[in-house]
């Protein structure tokens, strides 16, 4: 794997005095897929939002290919053109057809010729199995289809890194895999990604490296094999356990109380 594309150094972020990120550092190298997991409210989403400037950071620095991108700057849109992001709520533009959703960024922000982008967009829609939806309006699509369109929309900007923020959290269970397979396809193609997810099996399948975030700090970091099968910290073990269920037939320790009123 190549050089570090993204470097995050000791960033802090608090909302109304509550520290959400309390000194997070990480690095993502070219072609690497980093999955960030952790309990709700641990700051994973905030971390992604800070990276492309949707939230301003209180302290610390963020570098994209060695260039500092954090702090106040007027050309934030130029930075964001190089960083793709997809959200939980798809956020397609409801007043535009699928194709217009896809073309908006490349033609208006990057100024690329329409015909060229359109051809590329159709190819990518084909790859995610939605070529026939090019002229559809977002509201006619299922959640899974919307999210695949959102992925294509982000990819058409040819980002250097893609940030995925719980992109399957709002989907019906049967639609999760159609979206995640697209992500795995992208990962195979060498796309650099930072992914926040609650789908642990997907995380294990797609990750080159896993970060475990809790209470605003990186508590553990390792390969998926290490993290999912031999977590080093008690917290991580506890977190992973929350995705399994004890069978009702496992053990019976609690005594039935007949005299509950006493």
């Amino acid at each position: 794997m190549g050089e570090a594309i993204l470097r995050v150094r000791d960033i802090h972020k608090s909302f109304d005095g509550t520290g959400v990120l309390r000194g997070v550092s990480m690095e993502i190298r070219e072609g690497e897929v980093v999955v960030i997991v952790g309990p709700s409210g641990c700051g994973k989403s905030t971390l992604l939002r800070c990276i492309n400037g949707l939230e301003t950071i209180d302290r610390g620095e963020i570098f994209l290919r060695g260039e500092k991108i954090s702090g106040r700057r007027k050309d934030l849109h130029l930075v964001r053109q190089r960083i793709g992001m997809v959200f939980q709520s798809y956020d397609l533009f409801p007043h535009m057809k699928v194709m217009d959703n896809l073309l908006l960024g490349p033609t208006k922000a990057l100024g690329r010729p329409r015909a060229e982008v359109e051809k590329e967009a159709l190819e990518m829609l084909e790859r995610v199995g939605l070529r026939e939806k090019a002229c559809a309006l977002p509201r006619t699509l299922s959640g899974g289809q919307k999210q695949r369109v959102a992925l294509v929309r982000a990819m058409l900007m040819r980002p250097e890194i893609l940030l995925l923020d719980e992109i399957t959290a709002a989907l019906d269970p049967e639609m999760v895999s159609e979206v995640l397979n697209v992500v795995i396809d992208l990962a195979r193609g060498g796309m650099t990604m930072a992914i926040v997810t609650h789908e642990m099996r997907f995380a294990e399948a797609v990750a080159d490296r896993v970060l475990f975030l809790e209470e605003g700090v990186v508590l553990e970091e390792g390969t998926p094999e290490e993290f999912f099968h031999a977590p080093k910290t008690e917290r991580a073990r506890h977190f992973l356990q929350s995705f399994t269920y004890a069978s009702k037939r496992d053990k019976v320790e609690i005594q039935p109380k007949n005299n509950a009123g006493d």
């Binding site: 960083i83 956020d91 533009f93 960024g105 982000a154 900007m157």
Partner: peptide, 15 residues
């Protein structure tokens, strides 16, 4: 979230 989505595909504020 719509504005954020717009920002994420690199649109300027005016765009």
């Amino acid at each position: 979230s719509q504005t954020e989505a717009g920002a994420c595909i690199g649109l300027t504020r005016a765009q």
